[in-house]
């Protein structure tokens, strides 16, 4: 513990009431649409192989192997989809090791949903109508922007993310006066640096900005569409410079998914991070997952927008103590 003992909540009581109302509104949004509310375990049999997401490990019996606090309910929800659940949603706690900042807390609440038969464009429209409904009385929003990753770079920094070479991205970063050390020669990392440092601050204010069709190297669990320059059918929603949601037209090809997991594990190894077991249950389910699109939305950040908070701490009942 740092500092004297303090029982007081981090968020104000009015904010906690707003949180309760938003949860109710979310249920009221999905129920008439026939989207089923589900619960999946917080304790997951496998962590994630994503080199940039670290799982917290736990155990439930000394005779059982490692178990992980879920970093996202994605894998379990896909197993439900494979079992024929139809469209589903849930609001659940997720956990990410080492993530702490103005917009980050190691434990946070995610609203995650899957729509059977949707592609990422249809899902973006649904995300837009939900977010507009929830922010209606709190923020005057301009009409939403729907831009491809390529368009948003063109609009804000006049650079082509799909055609630029690593050297060109690095030259741009230097030109912008960004002093960065230790970043590997990995094009996705440099794209993310430019996105967070140069593009995000230049996005229009009070406007939901949907960015879709990501560079294929940032596909994560999205389908890749083969064009002259292949793109991943993935989208993100930003409002006032804050990343609010990330969605995919879901990859359902188990062989391709296994390859991506293995590539991620190689990258983890190169980064000196612990190897993670691959979720075989998910891979077994994928061939049965219907064509669908899914999205994860940070509920705490949405509440931040509702009350105009600068820090996530203002919307959480309690937060972790700062390390000394």
């Amino acid at each position: 513990m740092s500092g004297p003992a303090n029982y007081r909540p981090s968020a104000g009581l009015v904010t906690l009431q707003i949180r309760a109302r938003i949860r109710k509104q979310i249920r009221a949004f999905f129920d008439p649409r026939g989207v089923l509310e589900v619960e999946t375990p917080v304790l997951a049999q496998a962590g994630v192989t994503d080199p940039h997401i670290d799982s917290m490990k736990s155990c439930w019996s000394k005779h059982a192997g490692d178990i992980y606090l879920q970093t996202s309910p994605e894998y379990a929800m896909k197993r439900l989809l494979a079992a024929g659940s139809g469209s589903i949603y849930q609001m659940s706690k997720v956990f990410r090791y080492g993530e702490r900042g103005r917009h980050h807390h190691p434990e946070f609440t995610m609203l995650e949903w899957y729509r059977v038969g949707f592609d990422h464009h249809q899902l973006m429209l649904e995300v837009d109508s939900l977010v507009r409904k929830l922010l209606l009385d709190h923020l005057t929003l301009n009409p939403s922007c729907f831009w491809t990753y390529r368009e948003v770079w063109k609009q804000t920094i006049d650079l082509d993310p799909l055609k630029s070479t690593l050297a060109q991205l690095q030259a741009f970063v230097e030109e912008q006066g960004i002093d960065i050390s230790g970043l590997e020669d990995d094009i996705a990392g440099w794209q993310q640096l430019i996105m967070t440092h140069c593009v995000e601050p230049r996005l229009p204010q009070d406007t939901p900005v949907f960015i879709y069709d990501f560079p294929a190297c940032q596909a994560a669990l999205a389908k890749i569409r083969d064009e002259d320059l292949p793109v991943a059918e993935r989208f993100e929603l930003y409002i006032n410079g804050m990343e609010l949601a990330n969605g995919f037209h879901e990859l359902t090809d188990a062989d391709e998914q296994r390859k991506r997991f293995q590539a991620e594990l190689l990258k983890r190894k190169a980064m000196g991070k612990p190897e993670m077991p691959v979720d075989e249950h998910l891979l077994a389910a994928l061939p049965f997952v219907p064509d669908c699109a899914g999205v994860a939305l940070g509920l705490d950040r949405l509440i931040m927008l509702v009350i105009g908070a600068q820090r996530i701490d203002e919307v959480l009942s309690f937060v972790v103590d700062e390390p000394r």
Binding site: D50, H52, I53, G98, E99, R100, G101, R102, H104, I180, L183, A188, G189, Q192, L193, M195, T196, H197, Q218, A220, E236, E243, N246, A296, G298
Partner: peptide
């Protein structure tokens, strides 16, 4: 400031 895209590289500015 801790800056991190949901999927991707985290930075400290």
């Amino acid at each position: 400031e801790f800056v991190k895209p949901g999927k991707g590289q985290a930075f400290n500015r």
